[in-house]
Amino acid sequence: MTPETPATPGIPGDTVIVAEHLRRVFPRRGRPDVVAVDDLSFTVRRGEVLGLLGPNGAGKSTTIKMLTGILVPTAGRLEVAGVDPTRHRTALARRMGVLFGQRTTLWWDLPLGDSLDLLGRVHRVPPDRLRRTRELLVDVLDLGPLLGTPVRQLSLGQRVRGDLAAALLHGPDLLYLDEPTIGLDITSKRRLRELLTTLIAESGVTLLLTTHDLSDVEALCRRVLVIDHGTAIFDGDLAALHVAGGSARTLVVDLVAPVPSLEAPGATTVRTEDDGRRHWLRLPQDASTAPVIAAIAAAHEIADLSVREPEIEDVVARLYSGGGPAVSD
């Protein structure tokens, strides 16, 4: 929200996105309507990084398209930077950067470098700033060897890097990234996360991120909004997500001499292997392993042990299913 934009009554002045009871229905002739988003409410503040999570078909991309003004909500209220994104789509486009991992904003038959230059002119970026920003993005995203290649000849990972450069070229203060690391190798993912982290820290960019790569979420997001069937089922920080998803740590203990069962205060045995030599114990995510290990060591000779932290993928999956604590294998 720009300083000259009046704040919505009851909404903090630094709030960039306000969504209240959003609903989006896709009618189908002769068949039941598809409810993609149903009674979804959330707010996002300036400089916040929000991870929007959900399984395929949960309504993530539909939500992003409503936020960008591409789709009109069937019901509810939506405000982005103080205005209705559908009615002020052109004005908001100058402040937004958008990346849809499966679609491109680049010109299919133009070389990548020409596409970036053309986009800079479309967004009316001053030439000196365009040159500096372009050089930075080309370096960070390793686009130099690709600038002369037509977009249609780029691989998926190469095109995604090009689309990310296009989304950042005009210096937006609001970023929508839908599956930004799809098709990227490990090195490219790392460099992308470092770029986004720096951008957020130095420029105060507000970022809405949808991804199936939950390592992106752990690296970038302090807050996550989990939706399923178009409805929010969780909104909070990662620590709260672990609690809501029944997150648990796993202690794997190898004993010198086998025992049929292993008991320790505050832990529950969930598996016994190797004829009683290896035992898997579960304890809450926020519990210390020290007293558990001390109790076991006082009663048995330990050959080896390891602590396995819960995978966020398991936590989110169990949140979808409504199951209990997950154990890391």
Score class of each variant (00 low, 15 high):
293 I>A: 03
309 E>G: 10
322 G>M: 10
248 A>Q: 03
299 A>T: 13
287 A>H: 15
293 I>Y: 04
275 D>C: 05
249 R>N: 13
258 P>W: 01
329 D>M: 10
328 S>M: 09
329 D>Q: 14
301 E>V: 12
279 H>D: 08
281 L>G: 03
295 A>D: 04
243 V>E: 14
304 D>T: 12
320 Y>P: 12
263 E>S: 12
306 S>T: 13
329 D>H: 12
258 P>I: 08
298 A>R: 13
256 V>G: 02
260 P>V: 10
326 A>M: 05
272 T>K: 10
288 S>D: 15
269 T>V: 13
319 L>G: 02
258 P>K: 09
317 A>D: 02
305 L>V: 11
305 L>P: 09
274 D>S: 09
319 L>Q: 01
268 T>K: 02
289 T>K: 05
253 V>G: 03
327 V>Q: 04
250 T>R: 14
294 A>I: 01
275 D>R: 12
271 R>H: 06
291 P>A: 06
281 L>N: 04
309 E>T: 14
279 H>Y: 14
315 V>F: 06
314 D>M: 07
312 I>W: 07
321 S>Q: 11
290 A>N: 10
329 D>C: 02
267 A>G: 04
282 R>N: 05
275 D>A: 15
266 G>Q: 05
248 A>N: 03
258 P>A: 04
250 T>E: 08
267 A>V: 01
294 A>P: 00
303 A>K: 09
250 T>Q: 14
253 V>T: 03
274 D>C: 04
288 S>P: 01
287 A>P: 00
306 S>W: 11
314 D>W: 00
261 S>L: 11
302 I>D: 10
255 L>R: 01
251 L>D: 01
298 A>C: 08
256 V>W: 03
287 A>W: 05
327 V>W: 07
323 G>W: 03
325 P>H: 10
251 L>S: 00
247 S>N: 02
268 T>C: 07
295 A>P: 00
319 L>M: 07
314 D>V: 07
271 R>G: 09
278 R>C: 15
308 R>T: 05
246 G>F: 03
281 L>I: 11
244 A>H: 09
258 P>Q: 10
257 A>F: 05
318 R>S: 13
279 H>C: 07
262 L>V: 08
247 S>L: 04
272 T>N: 05
308 R>Y: 02
279 H>G: 03
306 S>C: 11
244 A>D: 00
326 A>N: 08
287 A>M: 01
329 D>P: 10
246 G>L: 02
325 P>S: 15
254 D>I: 00
293 I>F: 14
295 A>L: 07
327 V>S: 13
317 A>I: 13
270 V>E: 14
261 S>H: 11
283 L>A: 00
284 P>E: 11
309 E>I: 10
272 T>W: 09
271 R>V: 08
283 L>D: 01
263 E>Q: 06
248 A>E: 02
272 T>Y: 06
299 A>H: 11
306 S>R: 15
275 D>T: 09
276 G>C: 06
301 E>S: 12
312 I>N: 10
316 V>R: 00
321 S>N: 12
293 I>R: 15
258 P>G: 08
249 R>W: 00
277 R>W: 05
300 H>L: 06
268 T>R: 15
285 Q>L: 06
310 P>D: 08
311 E>H: 14
285 Q>G: 03
